[in-house]
Structure formats: C-alpha cells, structure tokens
Design a protein around this nucleic acid. Structure first.
Lengths: 194, 194
DNA sequence: CGCGACGTTGATTTGCCTCAACGATTGTGG
DNA sequence: CCACAATCGTTGAGGCAAATCAACGTCGCG
C-alpha cells in the first residue's frame, strides 16, 4: 500500500522499528476516504478511531450553549485527529470533527490500538510520545489565549501557520482564535491599510 | 519509606506491579522538602524533575510581556507538577513553579525516568496514561476558556474545586481563570448580595 | 510599629461582541 | 446552464463585559 508510506515515515521518525514491526503497525490501519463536509466524529457517539491524515484537512469543534462553534483544532497532512477524551476513555464524544476538503485518512480503532500498545514496548513508547507532545502543544495554545490579545493571536497564527490560515474558512479560523468573524475582518483590514 | 506509600497507591491504581517493580519505581524518587515561596522550576533553567506532591500546594505560572502573571496550574496532594514542555524536550523552561505552602514532594529526574520507561513496558504504560489524561484535562480547560464567561468560569471552579478555591490566594485564582483580581472581587460580592 | 502584600470598591475606558445590512461566492435544483 | 437560495465575508453603529486606574482598609510579619 503506497498510501501507508507517509505513516511509516511518521512513526519511523519517533521510534525505530524493524520490517515486521512496521508491517504489524500499519496493518492495523484501514484507509478511508472522506468527502468534504462529512463528519468523522460526532457528539454522543464514542470516537472509535484515531485518524492519521494522508491528504486533506479537518476541523474539530465544539458547540456551546447558544450555538456558537468553537474550533479546537485544525489538522492537515501528517497530523492526527480524534476526540481524544472520547477515544482514550471510550466515552461519548463532545466534539464534531468534519472534513474541510475531500480527504484520505488512515484509521486505527480503539481495540487494535490497545493490542498494539500491549504487544510491543515500542508501540507503547510511540503513543506516549504522541500524547506528551500533544500536551505540550495544547498548553502552548492555552498560554497564548491567556496572555495575548485577539490581534496578537491572529498575527501570530498567520506567521506560524500561513498555509493553514489560507486553507481554512475565515469563520473557522476566527472561532479557533477565540473571536468573531466580524472582528477578525476588521483586524485584517486595519492591518492592510497601515 | 512511609512517605512513598501515596505514590505506590497512585501508580498501583493505573498499572499493576509486583513488589520488585514497585521497589524499582519508587527508588528512583527522592524526597524533597520545599518551603513556602520557594521555586522548584524557573524560566531559562531546564526542568530537571517531575514532581509528585505528598503534601502542600504549588502554582505554575508564566509572566507575560508587561509583567502580568498567568497561572497555568494548581497542584495539591496526589498530583504531579513540572514544566512539561521543558521536561520532555529538556529545553529551558518558560514557567515558574512556586510552593504556596511548606510542601513535600517526590522527585524523579529526567534520566531516571527515561531509564524506567525503557526498562519496563509497564512503566512506559504508566507515563503514557499520565500524558493522555493530562492532555484531556488541559483540553477541557481550553474549551472552558473559549466557551464561557469569566463569571461562569469562576462559579464552575468554585463548585468543582471548592477546596482549592479556598486554599490559594485570590490573585492566583483570578489569573488562573483569566481575569483580574478586581473583577473577581466584584463577582464574589454581587453573588453574595443576591 | 511600620512596611509591603493582599483584597476591595468606585470611576472610567476599551477590546471585543451583537445586531443589522450588504455584496460576493458557492451550491443546487429545475 | 441559468436562477435562486444559501453561505460566506465585510462594514458600520451601538452596547457590554471586563480591564485599567486609583484610592483605601486590612492583615501578616520582620
């Protein structure tokens, strides 16, 4: 499966596996095509899969009491996505995960992942490293939200992730950065005229 | 060491170890007493230890450009604390971690933890579970910050963690919840008079 | 006792939101 | 392939939640 090569490269960067182990690992993943606007995770359903993105883009978001959407994460090629709280505890999800484009993902279900981790120390290590780095990443974002203004967050995101900023809809980006589309639109324009 | 019993109970809830393994695990930790107002992590120094709190309370915070402090985490008995970004990457910290009370912690240094994880699959599993749950916890907080007002966050915290709310200084709690002490004071009083 | 840290209260300001109206795109069914 | 609707982004007016600025009382502690 040449589609699995990206995943093989991905894990090989983090732990060193032999041929058999690579085979064992990738054989737990099944390839899935996802159409734009299709959901792969929905509230009240348990997140069955951890998803590795081969091609395309996704958005994870929650819906607050009055209906406003808040984007939790954007994901493109070579990143992972799920509702991890739901996935690790195998409890109903609180998030939506929707495809922003026609996409291709590799999916591993919960039981297969548990078996992988139990069967081989290195697989356990891989998932531990993933979790640690995810934690570091989300903590960085929390700090950014606590310490910076909307304008600073916007500028920062544009500079750090210019490709994502141009690839996702404005309303999704605004809700990721914790502001309204109207306000973000004003930020963009005052910036241009300066 | 009867001080280690809490840690033994803690890990035993998450992975099942035999006597030898328990001994191997706890022998990597050294007991440290920390005085109130003493720092155990400081910016620009690499976080050498992961700390398990036996007794006392700590506060992790960052200092933003204009000098405002933003509390990242409160930690009391039976919780862990470090600057995890610094610890896992072994790079200079960006946080302060300070004792709010005279405290006792069990510390494991980075190299010992690496050896533990490499030596035994179960130890690796334990740290993987910790990282996953930490991620789920911080994500919940990020969502709360994105979706709720200052008043809602304040009420929510009081109800979920009444003991911590009464145990830590007000300025620390306010900076944890993302508001000023003045505003929090007003919230508290309008609530009382109603 | 006197200083500094802490919390409160009031007056004022502001960053960002809400509401509303409007083009520009995109999608869709006939 | 066109017409119409729906979605998306922009712009302006007005409002509010929360910050800032400032002054003051209290407490703990050297």
């Amino acid at each position: 499966m040449e589609h699995h090569q990206a995943l093989i490269d991905h894990i090989s960067k983090r732990v060193s596996l032999n041929e058999d182990e690579i085979q064992e690992f990738v054989s737990c993943f099944k390839i899935t095509k996802v159409k734009k606007r299709q959901f792969i995770i929905q509230p009240d359903f348990v997140a069955k899969y951890r998803n590795y993105v081969i091609q395309g883009a996704f958005r994870a978001y929650v819906v607050a009491d009055e209906g406003e959407e808040h984007t939790i994460q954007f994901v493109v090629e070579d990143w992972w996505i799920s509702d991890y709280s739901s996935f690790i505890y195998q409890q109903p999800a609180s998030m939506f995960v929707i495809a922003l484009e026609d996409s291709i993902v590799l999916q591993i279900d919960y039981e297969s992942e548990q078996k992988l981790k139990a069967s081989n120390h290195k697989f356990e290590t891989f998932f531990r490293i993933m979790a640690e780095r995810s934690f570091a990443g989300i903590q960085k974002r929390l700090i950014s939200n606590l310490t910076k203004t909307a304008e600073e967050r916007f500028t920062e995101f544009e500079q750090n992730y210019p490709k994502i900023a141009n690839r996702v809809p404005q309303y999704a980006l605004a809700s990721f950065l914790g502001m309204t589309t109207q306000y973000m639109s004003k930020l963009r324009n005052t910036r241009v005229h300066k």
